[in-house]
Every structure is written in C-alpha cells, then in structure tokens.
C-alpha cells in the first residue's frame, strides 16, 4: 500500500515536473487542428488550407483543417477560445471574426484580446469605391457633392450588415459628413451583381473581387482605401490622397491560437506560418486572389487586432448600427 502511494506520488511529481518544458520541446507531437469558422471554399478556408499545406513540410506534423461555420465565425472562434492553449488547436479567420464581431456584438462568447493569442496577420486587400455604370459621378469629390446636394438618395450596396464593406461605407459617410441608404446583401457576389445591373448605386468592395468588372467597364472605380495606389490601376487615387485620413481600410485574414499558448510554441507556429506565407508559390497564389501577404509577427498582430476593434467600435457607436437584441 505504502509502496503504491510512493510510486504514485513519484510518478505524479515526475510527470508534473516534466509536463511544462517537455511539451514545448516535443511540440508538435501529434497532428494540429486548424479551425476555419467559415464554410469550405471561402477566403478564410482557402488562406488556411494553402498556408498550412505549404507550412507542413518543415513542421513535422500534419495540420488538419476543420470547418466550423456560423454567425460570422463566432461559433468556431468561441470553440477555439475554450480550447487548451497547447498549440494543437488553431484558428484562421477574417476581419469579421477578429475585428468587427467584438465591436458589433455585446453577447459574444469570445474576445480576441482576452481569449486569443494572434500568430500573424496573413494577408490583406484594400476596398475599392465603385459605382454602377452611368451614375454620372467621375470622382470622389463629385460623389460627395452629389450626396450633399441630395442626402439619403444614393443606395450603397454591402455584403451584409456589419460586414467590412458596410462599415467602410459608414466610415466614409462619417468622415465626409454625408449619408446614403445602406442596402445589405447576403455576401459580396449578389451586391456586385446588382451594382452591375444598375439596381444599386455605390459600393465598397474588395479590390480583388471587382478588378475585372472595372476593366470591362461594368463598374466605375473612383478610389481605393489602400496606403498607396494599386499597380494594376495606377490612375485611381487612394482615399488618403484625396484627404480622407482615417479611410485606410483593408479586409484581412489572420491566424490565432488560444490565449496562454507557451511562448516557444507560439513563436514556432508564427515562424512556420510567416515562412509559408512569404514563399513565392503561396504569395503568387494569393496575389491571383487579390490578396497581398502581410506575415507580421505575433506582437504586431496583437496590436493590430486591438487597434481594429477600437476603430470599428467607434464607427459602430457613431453610426448607431448596433443591432438591438
């Protein structure tokens, strides 16, 4: 009996002493699960799958993608926030999940700042201010003048209430002290279709998604929300150039782990992910989708996400667009 207790105690001590350091050294000892809180085929899914596929070689373990869609990524993010911070459960999601949900919803079951350790901001793409063909507005200045002359007449199509392009429109109205009618759609595709068909007037859409329609004259592009002009459209000004200071907006995708992940593991994951993102093949593939690779480090990523949440919280508050529960 005594022997047994001693043995058990010894085992417990040995196990307890070993558990911490061994875990980080041996990591990864088993396959890692990457939760994508959106359906297969979307931007987060593609970014997650392509990046982890490229990362796998030097990593030593396979990374399995699991889709847990729903509520703009809230279901998947909440499940990752509750997972053990051991580096075996990660998440790849969007500006909506990490940056806008916390600004929009008070009943959210996760807070990216408190429950998640960001690993890296993977990619980003600016929004483009586009109008339907034949609206008769050639510059942002003319658009602002028209909005001031006839307030609340032009319709602004967005990919949904609380989407990044909706909040960009809201920010545009607040900055230029104008207003329009917000017309939400279920996703960017239908919004773009109605813009081309002339059923809606204006929209902020991801540059990569509409570049081709603009080239073919199905939409007109007035400006982009990037920090510099796009090499594909050197004649289109940035909002910053036009004097709209706070209107540098990107739609981004990022990787994160549960809060409290051991620093060595977090560093290893971040290194693997950024190396994969910076590899020419991956950069080129994302370039085709209209995304530019960011691949910053965990500290920068944490700061960036916190700043985004603050920024969008202010836009939501000033625009009074919080859904009443």
């Amino acid at each position: 009996m005594n022997k047994f207790i001693t043995a058990a105690a010894g085992f417990a001590v040995a196990f307890g002493a070993l558990a911490g350091p061994v875990m980080a050294q041996d990591y990864p000892a088993k396959p890692v699960t990457l939760i994508v809180p959106f359906p297969p085929g979307g931007a987060s899914d593609t970014i997650g799958r392509v990046t982890t596929q490229a990362m796998q070689e030097g990593f030593g373990q396979s990374i399995v993608v699991e889709n847990k869609p729903g509520a703009n990524g809230a279901i998947g993010a909440a499940s990752v926030a509750r997972s053990a911070p051991d580096g075996y459960t990660l998440i790849a999601a969007s500006i909506g999940t990490f940056g806008i949900n916390p600004a929009l919803r008070s009943d959210l079951e996760y807070d990216p700042r408190k429950d998640l350790d960001m690993l890296t901001i993977a990619v980003r793409t600016p929004n483009a201010l586009v109008t339907r063909p034949g609206l008769g507005v050639k510059t942002v200045e003319e658009l602002v003048a028209k909005l001031k002359a006839e307030p609340d007449t032009l319709t602004f199509a967005s990919s949904g209430t609380g989407s990044s392009d909706h909040l960009t429109a809201e920010l545009f109205w607040q900055t230029s002290q104008t207003s329009g009618i917000h017309v939400p759609y279920k996703g960017g595709g239908p919004a773009q279709t109605d813009l081309m068909g002339g059923h809606a007037d204006v929209s902020f859409q991801n540059l990569g998604n509409i570049a081709n329609y603009v080239r073919e004259g199905k939409m007109e592009m007035l400006a982009i929300t990037a920090d510099q002009r796009s090499p594909d459209f050197p004649d289109v000004p940035t909002m910053k150039e036009l004097g709209f200071d706070g209107l540098e907006v990107y739609s981004w995708q990022a990787f994160a782990a549960p809060k409290g992940t051991p620093p060595e593991i977090r560093a290893k994951l971040a290194e693997g992910l950024t190396a994969a993102l910076k590899s020419p093949a991956v950069t080129e593939q994302f370039g085709k989708m209209g995304f530019a690779v960011v691949a910053n480090d965990p500290t920068e990523a944490d700061a960036f996400v916190a700043a985004e949440i603050d920024r969008w919280s202010k836009v939501v508050k000033d625009g009074d667009i919080k859904p009443e529960q």
Binding site: G70, I75, T161
Partner: peptide, 20 residues
C-alpha cells in the same frame, strides 16, 4: 436567423448555432 437588414437575430433563443 440573422435579419439581413438590421443584423438582429430572430427566433434563435440566443444560440449562435441558429444565427445563420
């Protein structure tokens, strides 16, 4: 599910599983 126009969740009993 979530109302497209206002973003309000309708008849979901506060469950995210029914948000869509």
């Amino acid at each position: 599910g979530t109302d497209v126009n206002s973003g309000v969740m309708r008849y979901t009993f506060g469950r995210d599983e029914m948000a869509d």
